[in-house]
Amino acid sequence: MISVKGLKKHYQVKQRPPGLAAALTALFSPQTKTVKAVDGIDFDIEPGARVGFLGPNGAGKTTTLKVLSGLLYQSDGSVTVDGHVPQRRDAAFLKKIMLVMGQKQQLLWDLPPSETFELNRAIYEVPRPAFDQRLAELTELLELGDLVNKPTRTLSLGERMKCELVAALVHGPRVLFMDEPTIGLDVSMQVVMRDFIRRYNEKYGATLILTSHYMDDVAALCPRVIVIDKGQLSYDGSLEALAKKVRPEKRVTFRWSSAVDPEVLSRFGRVVSSQAGEAVFQLPQASVKDAVGKVLATLPVADLTVENPPLEEVMSELFSRSRAAQKPVEAAS
C-alpha cells in the first residue's frame, strides 16, 4: 500500500546570531544552513495496517506524513501510496487519502460543521445516498447528535475534533494520515477517538499512519511502530519488542502490611521509589522471580504487581540515548 525508499527532505533555513549588527549583516549577506528534516528512510506498509510514527519533537514524523500525503516535495527518494506518486496530487489519489491534524482545523469556524461536510461532499463528488449513509453512520459512531448543526465556534475542543474526523471521512478514504489527533483532549475523549479509529480501520480495511505523543494512543492502536529520530529511522517493529529492547527490566510494586525500613530495600534490587506503605523496584527480567521470592520471605508484603515499565519512560530513555549517541545532523553551508 505504502512504499518509501531513501526518502530525504532537506530545508534551507536562514540563520543569524542575535544582535542588531548581526541582523543588519544578515540583510545583505544572509547565512543559510541545511536542516535535514528527513534523511534517508525506508519502509513499506501493508494495506489495512495500523502503524505509529514515534519520535521526539522535530524528529521528522510530521514531515514524513506530509510527504506521504503529497503536501511536501521530497528532496530525494521515492514514495508511492497505493500506486500513486503523492506529489502529483492527482484527484484519484486525493480521493483515497485523508489527513487529520490535531492542531489545525478545516471546519468553517462561524458555520455549523454540517456546512463543511456538504462542501466536502461536493468537492469529493460523493453521491448523495452514499454521503447520507456515511454521515449517519459516522454521526452515530461518534455520538454527535445535533452538534453538527451548531456553529463550530460554539463547540468544545473534543466535539470539534470529532467533527473534524467526520469532515475528513465523508469521502470514505482508504488511507488515514493522523497527526496527533487526540492532542489536548481529555482522557475519556481520547478513548472515544481511539475506539472510533480502530473500528473504522477494522470495518473498512483502511490503512492508518498515526503520530502521537500520547503513548496510550499508540499502544491501543498500533501493533507496529516506526521510530524516527533526527530524520532517520531508528526502529521498525512491534511496540512490545521495542519496549523490551530499550527497557528489558520489569517493574515490581510491593505494598506493605506494616512499616518497612527503607534502608533495607536496596538489598533486593534497584529501588525506583519508596513511600509509606509502598515500594517500586526495577528488576532485570531474569532476576524477578528470585528477588520477589526473597522480598516475600523477609518483608511484610500485603500485595504485589509486576508490570512493564511505562511506555513514556521507555520512549524518553530511547530518545535521550539517541541524543547522546548521535552527532547533530545540520551542516552549515
Binding site: 503529497g70 486525493l94 489527513l99 489545525k104 469529493y124
Partner: peptide
Amino acid sequence: RKGTLDFVLLKPA
C-alpha cells in the same frame, strides 16, 4: 502562515 493551506491542497479540486 498557519499551515491550513494543507487542507486546500489535499482536496481533489
